[in-house]
Design a protein around this nucleic acid. Sequence first.
RNA 1: GCCGAGAUGGCGGAAUCGGUAGACGCAGCGGACUCAAAAUCCGCCGGUGGAAACAUCGUGGGGGUUCGAUUCCCCCUCUCGGCACCA
Length: 901
Amino acid sequence: MQEKYQPADVEIAAQDFWNQSGAARAIEDINRPKYYCLSMFPYPSGKLHMGHVRNYTIGDVLARFHRMLGDNVMQPMGWDAFGMPAENAAIQNNVPPAQWTYANIDYMKTQLKRLGFAIDWEREIATCQPEYYRWEQWLFTRLYEKGLIYQRLGTVNWDPVEHTVLANEQVIDGRGWRSGALIEKREIPMYYMKITAYAEELLADLDQLDGWPEQVRLMQKNWIGKSTGVRFAFPYELDGQPGQLWVFTTRADTIMGVTFCAVAAEHPLASYAAARDPRVAAFVEECKQGGVAEADLATMEKKGVPTGIFVTHPLSGEPIEVWIGNYVLMGYGDGAVMAVPAHDERDFAFAKKYGLPIRQVIAKGREDGFGDGSGYGGGTGSGSGAEDGSGSDVAITDFSLSAWQEWYGNKYIGVCVNSGKYDGLGYHAAVDAVAVDLAAKGLGEKKVQFRLRDWGISRQRYWGCPIPIIHCAACGDLPVPDQDLPVVLPENVTISGAGSPLAKMPEFYETTCPKCGGKAKRETDTMDTFVESSWYFLRYCCPDNDHAMVDERVSYWCAGGIDQYIGGIEHAILHLLYSRFWTKLMRDLGLFGEHRLDEPFAHLLTQGMVVAPTFYREDSHGKKQWLNPAEVDAVHDERGRAVGASLRADGLPVIVGGIEKMSKSKNNGVDPQALIEQFGADTARLFIMFASPPDQSLEWSDAGVEGAFRFLKRLWRIVYEHVSAGPVAPTPAAPLSTGLQGLRRQLHQTIGKVADDYGRRKQFNTAIAAVMELLNAYGRITDDSAAARAVRQETLEAVTLMLNPIVPHICEALYAALRPGHTLSGQAFPKPDANALVQNEIELVLQINGKLRGSLRVPVGADRASIESAALASGAAQKHLAGTAPKKLVVVPGRLVNIVA
RNA sequence: GCCGAGAUGGCGGAAUCGGUAGACGCAGCGGACUCAAAAUCCGCCGGUGGAAACAUCGUGGGGGUUCGAUUCCCCCUCUCGGCACCA
């Protein structure tokens, strides 16, 4: 054993050993429990950043821990290789996207190997390879034939200068990021996947995902957004033709308070009005300005214009004016809403702005539970109303915003007033009665509605999976036949930035119709990259199968779901929802045979993001040039926030942006390479695991890296000193000294804690801290007896085994030094020895009036009475009670006594 | 705007089911070793008052429940993530 810790030597030796022994190879074995440990695959952006190191270290810790528990572990890795950054790099550097992508994969793969992750590289996938995406195209054709993929118009961001569709990310303050042109909405034909057909199941199955964080289930639930309400129509007549304006509401109890309706700018009534009124036309035009991102739509100023069209209130018969509102979305429901200004904050603001009537129809009454489980369900009206006296009717008289907000509060539900026959009814009774009356007129019914929309998968981009459709003038749109798959994406192209190069390549799009054999045109749109990431985890099980998308090996590795999935919390909704959806689609196509797989991920660990400050400069066109934090010197205020910064290269100031997740687009990723080169992979792994619990977001700072390195050096030295002192005799039969007993007890407590932290809590920082404490206690033992050496040997062996999942290279070396002729690989995780944990006495906290005033030593298992008398006899109790009797005595067994004076 | 999460010493964080706030580490300060430095080892390390014992305040802000609240409830502020074409 070397005297000094040399991480580079230790790590190369360990990795060579693992590679030779095939330690990370995962081979199906039905006789062993499997453990499929999956980390979200990276986009090959160039270099790893700290977020990757964190993600894959967590995965590796769990994979190695489960291997030590005896599980047959598979930990695969691949590349989410299609995407926009490759096209942007192509424009900037004049390199084809494929070349750029494969070069990045090579480099990042080297970095992952250098970190020593126990990945089965035989299963590597890159989604840009035809062997991968051919199956995605194959599934597309099946879904298209079943009607689960269909075509319709969708709205996109259009850059009128570059004549290009832009991603939301490329629209900044309503302008194109390169051209600076004002962005317009444009409708183009797109393919959609019918995820709404699975809305009920995607919602219901969240209940069975008890291995998922509650917050993620809640976010998905809200995203799916099931609401029960009433869909109904306002009849109207235009040019003598009858029509119906359909809307959906969850507040049908307020229907008598409707004072206007609002429709989207793309609604047929809006088009009708625009054709006749130039002012309306101008407003509809104005609504086309700006991008399609919902965050922008939701935060912009609410504007509207009257159409001059009146519809008829379905119950009161009153005329109701139709307005166009820029906040009404055509893609949600019917593209029209009823407006009740007295009882909806947005309608209220709109009515105040345009001087529209406000009619109160709800009064404070009993606070009826809104939605599910209120106990009101199916009410006949008899139980509702204000007669229980819990609240008297208070009318809104002051319609100022502040008074209104105070009254209305947080979605206040009360009792109907000014509503004719519905007066006195509570929420559920009123909704039921209104629905019955609307149904009687054929103008409406109760309806379940989802917020979830169908998934538009068409992208007008080059670097993606081609959509396997052929457009024939005679036969229509046809899926590419199986024998012609894959539709291979040509890789040698030049990217100009204006439109997809595929649309300019006749050799790609000119084809023949598979049905009539005539001339036909191939679809030139590619698929959303979320499609590739929706099923890659299944393909890891059988990456070499060239005659089927998946095979029986999926049944082995994915039985009961993938055992652990680890990835960033930013994927909590879209990626995870799409993956759940695809798994259900594949199940319903029978691809899993008799092994039904309903949900792909049994346990989910959502990693907090590694965030870093962002810095930028604006060029002459106002375009932001992002600067890496490593190139910038920042000035901080006393709260640690960056308040100013300059670029090191020129000393000139740069603008300080927010603290955001490390990303290619904001150029704030920190490359771990320097860290690994200076301290080694184990220090990098230890440091990132010790820095914070995995689900918490972490602002990157390398302060403290040396502490992690110091710890490993110290561990090395401790083992070196112990081993150098010669062989150890077997544990003696004689009882141990109190000190050695204490160390053994702490050792076995630590083993229990570390196993719990790895296995159940998945909190690695506290596991590391516990081992550090154990080594601190080890260092306090000065005893050199044979018994002490035996306890030391036991402790150090256990420490190397406990730390192995986190810092496997150094542990491999230390274990070999501690047990010559043995290797760590194949060793089981240690188990606590119950005998070592036995204690005779424990210390209880003594509180007086809830404040710490001392402690008590009592025998283990002491009864309540003896604890109470010991507490009252204590000096602290005597002093604070001063002879008076305590009012109360609280005894928490094993923890504390609280005397209430 | 909507949905979800977070805020604890100078810093990262701990306190797992309502029971000793600040484990463990970083930085800092003091000391040992050294010709010196590095490395290493030992000690101190939330604020205020006090020589000390100890007292008192203290977990983003305000209120509440409780013998006892970082933890539960209500309101607010700020930060982060997502919002359907970044991945």
